[in-house]
Amino acid sequence: MFKYILRKLLALIPKLLVMSVILFFALELLPGDALSRTMPPDQYQALSEAQKVAAREALGLNAPPVIRYFRWLNQIFHGDFGYSASTGQNIGTMLAGRLPYTIELSFYGLLLATAVGLLLGFLSAVMKNTIVDYFCTTISVFGISLPEFFFGIVFIILFSVQLKWLPSGGRMPVGAHGFFSRVPYLVLPVMTMAISLTAALVRYTKNSMMDVMGKDYIKTARSKGLRETTVSFKHAFRNSLIPTMTLIVMRLPRLVGGSAVIEMVFNYPGIGNMALTAVNAGDIPVVMITTMTTGVMVLLSSTLVDIVTAMLDPRIRLG
C-alpha cells in the first residue's frame, strides 16, 4: 500500500511540471509588458521609460526563457503569482483569499452528492421496479437535463424569497465570523452544486449494483444462506463502489468548474466568481492562474481518490 501511494505521488511531479511550463509560456505569449505583471499597476504607471528598462534588467526579464522559467517557478513556490492588471492586487493574495471558499463549497457539494447519490442508487437497485426505483430514476433524469443555475434560481425563489428561510447569496453576514454563521449561506449553493453529480451517481451506482448482483459470487453468498441485506450490503454494494469512484474522479473538474456558475447565481465570493470578474475586465493572467490552480486542485484530489479506491480494491494496488 505504501509503495502504491508513493508511486501515485511521484507520478504527480511530471504532471505538475508540464502544467507549470504551459502556464509560464502562455503568460509569456500574452501581449503586453512582462514587467507590468511583476508589480502593482499604479507603481508600473509611475515608472519612466529609462526606469522600466533598468527594472527589466534588475529583475532579469531579459534573461533566456529557461532561466526565467526556473526563477518564476521559485516565485510560484513562494506564492508570488504577480499582480492583477485590473485590481492591482497580488494574484497570490487574491487566490489565497478566495480558494478556501471554493474548496469549502465543492467539498460539501461532493460530500452531499456522494451520500445522497450512493443511497438512492443503492435503493433503486435493491428495490428495482418499485415506486422507489421509479422515483429515484425520475429525479436523476431531471437532474442531468436541466442547467445547474436553473436549480439555483428555483432554490432562491423558493427558500429565500418565498419562505425566507435562507439568505439568497453572499458568504456570511457583515462582521460575523465562524463556521456557524456561514452555514445558512452554504446550504443553497451546496444543494445546487450537488444536484447534477447526485443525478449521475444514482444512475451509475444503480447500473453498477445490478452488474454486481448478477455475478456468481452473489449467488454463492445467497446459497450459503446469508441474509439478503448482508448480501446486498457487504458483497454487492462494496464491489459496486469501484466504478462509482471512477465517476467521481472524472467529475471533479466539473464540480470545481461548475462552481463558477453557481458562485455567480449565489454571489458567492469564490475563485469562479473571481475568474468571471477577471474575464470581464480582460485580465487574462488572473484567469489563467485561476484555471491552473483549479487544475492542480483536481489533480491532487483525484490522486487522493485513487488512493482511497486502492484501499477498497486490492486488485488495483497489486495490479
Binding site: M250, V256, G282
Partner: peptide
C-alpha cells in the same frame, strides 16, 4: 494520451471562460 489527460484535468467552464476571454 497525456494531452488528453492534461485537458481533462481542467474544469470545462473555466477553460471555456479563459478561451472566450482570449
Amino acid at each position: 494520451v497525456s494531452i488528453q489527460e492534461m485537458l481533462s484535468i481542467f474544469p470545462g467552464t473555466l477553460i471555456n471562460m479563459l478561451c472566450i476571454g482570449f
